[in-house]
Simulated assay, not measured.
Amino acid sequence: MKDKVLVVGAGRMGFGVIQTLIRKGYQVSVSDPSDEAVNRAKHIGAEAIEDSNQSLTDHNVIIMSLPGPVQVKEMTEKMVPFNQAHQPLVIDLSTIDPQTAIDASKRCKRKGLRYIEAPVSGGPSGASLA
């Protein structure tokens, strides 16, 4: 089994990412405020988690696929600090402006997280084809 990946945001784009990760053999957990989105991800093999912060230490990679800057700011503000022994990588696929990405990166760095902004092109169908 490959690394454990937490996907925060299981909407149209996030679901495509979840499909691809599961198909590639990753163990995927999912967090989303929508029960429908979580159930759809569970149906294809993802594990649902209630609180993404409780699960952060169990995952090497956190992928955020959020609707916009407000949600990215909220998520990165509420992430718990990590020690140097465990530094998960946050990959942000959200559609955000450069300043939001810079600010999110700074918040993550202060908490011991590594951050990469990785905007996705190709829409939901492109996310599920990789």
Rank of each mutant, 00 (worst) to 15 (best):
K2M: 14
L66S: 00
S121D: 08
Q19G: 04
P88N: 09
S52K: 10
V80D: 08
G126D: 10
Q54Y: 04
Q27R: 11
P98E: 07
N83D: 15
M1W: 00
S121M: 12
H86R: 13
K106P: 02
T76A: 06
G122T: 06
L56T: 09
K109I: 13
S65P: 00
Y26L: 07
T76N: 03
S34Y: 03
A118C: 15
A37I: 01
A41H: 01
V90G: 01
V90K: 00
I18G: 03
I49L: 12
P69M: 10
Y115D: 02
A10N: 05
V61F: 02
L21M: 10
D51W: 03
C108I: 01
L56A: 15
K24L: 12
N60C: 05
H86W: 10
G45H: 06
A127M: 05
K73H: 06
G122A: 11
V5S: 03
R107Y: 04
A10W: 03
V61D: 01
R12T: 13
A101V: 08
I63E: 01
Q27C: 08
K111Y: 11
N60A: 15
T57G: 13
Y26W: 07
G123N: 07
T57H: 12
N83R: 08
L66N: 01
E50P: 00
I62N: 01
L6T: 00
G112V: 05
T76W: 02
V7N: 02
S52G: 08
Q27I: 07
A46E: 05
P124R: 04
Y115K: 01
S34E: 08
P98F: 07
H59R: 09
K109H: 15
G68I: 05
E117P: 01
A118H: 07
V61W: 01
P69K: 10
L56N: 05
D92I: 06
L56S: 13
A127N: 00
D35Q: 12
S55A: 15
M75T: 11
I102L: 15
D103Y: 08
K2P: 09
K42R: 14
E74V: 07
I91E: 09
A104M: 12
A118Q: 09
M1Y: 03
K4V: 09
K111L: 12
K2S: 14
A118I: 07
S94E: 09
F15S: 04
P98A: 09
N39E: 15
S31N: 14
L129P: 00
P67R: 02
Y115P: 00
P98Q: 04
E50I: 12
R110M: 14
S128L: 05
R23Q: 14
S65E: 04
T95A: 15
A127S: 10
P119K: 10
N53A: 10
L93N: 05
T95I: 12
H59L: 06
G45I: 07
G14S: 04
A130D: 11
K4G: 06
S128Y: 01
S125G: 05
Q71H: 13
I22G: 03
T76H: 02
I62M: 14
K109M: 13
E50W: 05
S31T: 00
K78G: 08
K111W: 12
T100H: 10
F82H: 10
Q99I: 11
R12H: 14
